[in-house]
Computed example of a mutant assay.
Amino acid sequence: MQMRVSDEDRERTTQQLQQAFSEGRLNRSELEERLGAALSAKTYGDLLELITDLPAVQPQADGVVELGSKNGNVKRSGDWAVPRRLRVASKYGSVELDFTEAVIPHQVVDVELDLTYGSAKIILPEGAVANVDGFQADWGHPSTKVPSRPRPGVLCVVITGRAKYGGLTVRYPRKRWFTH
């Protein structure tokens, strides 16, 4: 297939690769190699070559991955695949999303928070930016220690939603001091 692909076609393929990674069908190095090839693909043939050994993915409702807990904490850290849109709901627990070691195939990630009695902490890789203008806290407050202005080639996390009795903290990883 020599027909040229669009950015949307590349995005769809990266989502399928990310899903295969989260199911354990691809290891991290395979995912990174295929994501690089998908993002630089020019034709449908280039994209099909990357996914022919994977099962067909059923698209999720509006492409949103939902995480939630009524009584416990929601935590993602280490080597995890970050979706383009993430919706997180927690009634009585906190939320911690650590993006520093995650596989993030998208330049912009939307995170929607729905918190009742808990706070959220989002840790971004050095240099990433976060926009918290769409987040409201009734009793707590959003605190961000990272820039908010989007820049080309830099991860931008857009955080929206609400916390009834909690706040939001967005920061870079803490510096580790080593002594010899």
Rank of each mutant, 00 (worst) to 15 (best):
R76M: 11
S119F: 02
S77P: 10
T116I: 08
D114K: 13
G93N: 01
I122H: 10
D133N: 15
V132N: 11
V108P: 02
D98F: 03
S119C: 06
S90R: 00
V103A: 11
P125L: 06
V129D: 08
E112I: 00
S119I: 01
L124K: 07
V82E: 01
E101V: 00
G78F: 06
K91E: 08
P105I: 05
Y117M: 12
S90G: 15
N131P: 00
L97I: 15
V129N: 02
A120R: 14
G118R: 02
V82C: 04
V111A: 07
H106S: 10
H106L: 00
A120D: 09
D133S: 15
V129W: 11
A102V: 06
A120T: 14
F135H: 10
L97K: 06
L97R: 10
I104L: 04
E112G: 03
R84C: 09
L113P: 01
L113W: 00
E96K: 13
Q107N: 14
P125Y: 05
P105K: 02
A128V: 01
R76S: 07
Q107V: 02
V132I: 14
E96H: 05
L113G: 03
V88H: 10
D110N: 11
D98C: 07
R84N: 13
P105G: 09
S90A: 14
G78T: 02
E101G: 02
V111E: 03
T116G: 00
A102D: 03
G134N: 11
V132A: 15
L115F: 07
S90F: 01
G134W: 07
T116S: 09
S77F: 12
N131Q: 14
T116Y: 10
E96Q: 11
L113V: 10
R85I: 05
I123A: 04
G127V: 06
V108E: 15
I104R: 12
S119N: 08
L115W: 10
G93Q: 08
S90T: 09
A128F: 02
F135I: 08
D98T: 01
R85C: 07
G78W: 11
A102Q: 05
G78K: 04
E112Y: 03
E101F: 08
